[in-house]
């Protein structure tokens, strides 16, 4: 048996523990919100062996645990509702009824090139159809979620997704849709819709998704 083999029982033991923990925790999901604080463990010098001519090791001074620092924070202010959502669009008046029964029918996603957030001609065409539907449904608000493929780092992709959502929003507002009727969010690479880990799947996952709110 080699030293590395001697690790095997320990590793599999850890697996068993974590599996059993997951079972327990899935039963009590909410009740697991705290973990044990790290109590200081203070070393002391062990007296030297009588027969050995070794000097006692110096005692390592313990480090006092830092006091828990308080977190000053307040709940986020609630998002302002759009009191007259759609009114300004409606007041433009005279718009024909949308030829689309839903945003999905108009086309709910526009797609982007790798690491880009500029709108393609096809994306503009889809957003123009979305604008027609939004205009024809004055009481409705939409959420635009920007999405990225998995070929970027997590935080950068959150930022890139925000840009994609904003690019779509800006195009809709340029068509006269009130910004009050559009919320944006980025899901970064956290919510792919295509699980193929290849260029085809990545292309599908690079999108801005317009979702009906309320």
């Amino acid at each position: 048996m080699t030293p590395s083999k001697s690790l095997i029982p320990q590793v599999s033991g850890a697996k068993i523990r974590s599996l059993s923990f997951m079972l327990v925790s899935s039963i009590a999901l909410v009740a697991c919100a705290s973990t044990k604080p790290a109590q200081p463990i203070v070393p002391e010098t062990v007296a030297p062996v009588a027969s050995a001519n070794a000097e006692a090791a110096p005692t390592v001074a313990p480090t006092a645990p830092a006091a828990a620092s308080g977190v000053a924070s307040a709940p986020l202010a609630p998002a302002a509702p759009a009191p007259d959502a759609g009114q300004s669009d409606a007041m433009r008046g005279g718009e024909a009824l949308s030829p689309f029964a839903s945003i999905a029918e108009a086309g709910e996603r526009v797609f982007f090139e790798t690491d880009r957030f500029d709108l393609t001609d096809e994306a503009r065409a889809i957003l123009t159809r979305q604008a027609a539907w939004i205009r024809a449904n004055p009481g409705k608000r939409v959420l635009i979620a920007g999405n990225c493929d998995e070929r970027g780092t997590r935080e950068y992709n959150l930022a890139l997704g925000a840009r994609r959502a904003s690019a779509a929003r800006d195009f809709l507002t340029s068509l006269g849709i009130s910004p009050d009727r559009i919320e944006t969010v980025s899901y970064g690479k956290e919510r792919p819709i295509d699980d193929r880990p290849n260029p085809e799947g990545w292309a599908v996952n690079r999108n801005a998704h317009t979702i009906l709110l309320d």
Binding site: A38, I41, V42, E44, T45, A47, P48, A57
Partner: peptide
């Protein structure tokens, strides 16, 4: 043939892994 280190740690029983880490 010499001692390089001699230390003692103490903690609660269930915390034995932390002693192993120390």
């Amino acid at each position: 043939e010499s001692q390089m280190l001699g230390l003692e740690f103490s903690t609660t029983d269930e915390n034995w892994r932390r002693i192993a880490h120390k």
